[in-house]
């Protein structure tokens, strides 16, 4: 067989392999496409663009997920914060049109599903965090820096940041075997992409590890470097 024919056969073989792998993931790909599209819309909404029509189309195409089993708990816990951000953008712009009211109502249809997913996530994480939680130590520090004036938005803002940190954590922990590898990835995201939530997440993980007796000095150095880069860029 000539080299050319061998190459042609190999090409055909590789294409068939990829085609078949993709075919087995068809259902998952449809979910990923929907998640990716919603992510694009959330970013556009954050930038103040009018997404009324596009998000309407997204709901028209994807609301069937509410009644079908193909969504994983992790998918719902990703969709929910994006919808919350879209609703916040509408609120911030003071949108009161019929279309925006319809979007709010569609978003609220997802809330029970999101709550159920959150409960499932808490149960999953229970066995991982049997060690002492860092929160009790963190509280007095927070109290010391909180201003006395009421600011309910600060709660919502922190809630959003925590949600985003959780998403980043799931990304950096995916496929890893130790939290140190996740921390390494989070620090890389903070340094390379100047991602503030990744920086906060890294700080949290470092504190968590320190509380559990790990040596964290090298990571603290990298955290400081990432903090400096982010501050410079801001």
């Amino acid at each position: 067989m000539s080299q050319a024919r061998s190459l042609k056969r190999l090409e055909s073989l590789l294409e068939t392999f990829i085609e078949q792998v993709v075919a087995t993931k068809e259902e998952r790909l449809s979910v990923l496409r929907g998640l990716n599209r919603l992510d694009d819309l959330t970013r556009e909404s954050d930038q103040g663009l009018d997404i009324t029509e596009s998000i309407g189309e997204w709901f028209a195409e994807h609301n069937r997920w509410l009644n079908e089993p193909q969504l994983r708990a992790g998918d719902v816990s990703r969709i929910a914060p994006m919808l919350v951000r879209i609703r916040e953008s509408l609120d911030n712009r003071g949108e009161q049109s019929a279309a925006s009211m319809k979007i709010r109502s569609e978003i609220s249809r997802w809330e029970p599903r999101a709550q159920a997913a959150r409960q499932k996530l808490v149960l999953k994480r229970g066995s991982e965090t049997a060690e002492p939680k860092p929160e009790p130590q963190a509280k007095p520090e927070v109290k010391a820096t909180v201003e006395q004036e009421p600011d309910e938005d600060s709660i919502a803002r922190l809630d959003n940041v925590l949600e985003r940190m959780h998403q980043i954590f799931k990304g950096v922990a995916h496929g890893r075997k130790h939290v140190l590898s996740a921390l390494d990835s989070a620090l890389r995201s903070a340094t390379v992409q100047r991602q503030k939530e990744a920086l906060l997440l890294s700080g949290f993980i470092i504190y968590y590890l320190k509380q559990n007796g790990y040596k964290v000095e090298p990571y603290v150095k990298r955290l400081k470097e990432a903090e400096r880069l982010i501050r410079e860029e801001a």
Binding site: L29, M82, R164, V172
Partner: peptide, 14 residues
């Protein structure tokens, strides 16, 4: 939100 890496993997599959 999806991380840029997740987004890229998703777009690669698509």
């Amino acid at each position: 939100m999806l991380s840029p890496h997740e987004k890229a993997y998703c777009q690669a599959l698509l």
